[in-house]
Amino acid sequence: MLIIENLTMIYPDGTVALRDVSFEVADGEFLGIIGLSGSGKSTLLRCINRLIEPTEGKIIWNGKDITKLNQQDLLATRREIGMIFQHFNLVKRSSVLTNVLSGRLGYTPSSWSLINRFSRADIERAHKALERMGIPEKASNRADELSGGQQQRVGIARALMQEPKIILADEPVASLDPVLAHSILGSLEKLNQEDGITVMCSLHFLDLVQRYSTRVIGLRDGRVVFQGTKDDVKKITDERFKEIYGEDAKRLGGE
């Protein structure tokens, strides 16, 4: 259970990225976040695991307020929160296996990781994660030798290594073509349904939201302007759509 209460984020240069955002995410939900670029989707996701320090408000994760955690507890809490990124954020020169294993660092003592050493169980787990993502044969390849879709799968495998209770996905398919987009979101859906991992996923395209998410929130200029179920999204009129995406926005036919 994730409860966001009155979350506000103001960047040092005065930009207000989030204003008084409040909503809840129940366990096992697939929450779609829609909004234009710059509407605060990425900031919102990064505030949840405190990659960005929120200015005000509470983020209550299973009873703990994440904003109040000290460094030690924050690191422990981050292990429960997986994250995948638009640009995959893999270490390009390292092997796929190393990239996946690095998802396990939160569980590994510092001194071990200094000499690049992981337990046998972790290596086993990494191979399993890759297998699950359908790319077991790529383990020893360099990350930048993989295609975009494969790289994102490595990203998901890395998040899986954390044994996360929730996955934050920051526009995971924005740099992939539509076919791959469905395949990646399908994998997330599968994790959501089979493992019961809560997913918070920011997306650009309405049809993807309609297809995958169980609930949707819409952000505009850092405010929540829409909350609804999958069915509500389907019923969105052009006027409502403009409210979310701003006056200039047009629907892209089919996409």
Binding site: L51, R79, S102, G103, Y107, R158
Partner: peptide, 8 residues
């Protein structure tokens, strides 16, 4: 960013 997010 990615590694910080994993709790490293």
């Amino acid at each position: 960013e990615a590694l910080q997010a994993t709790g490293a």
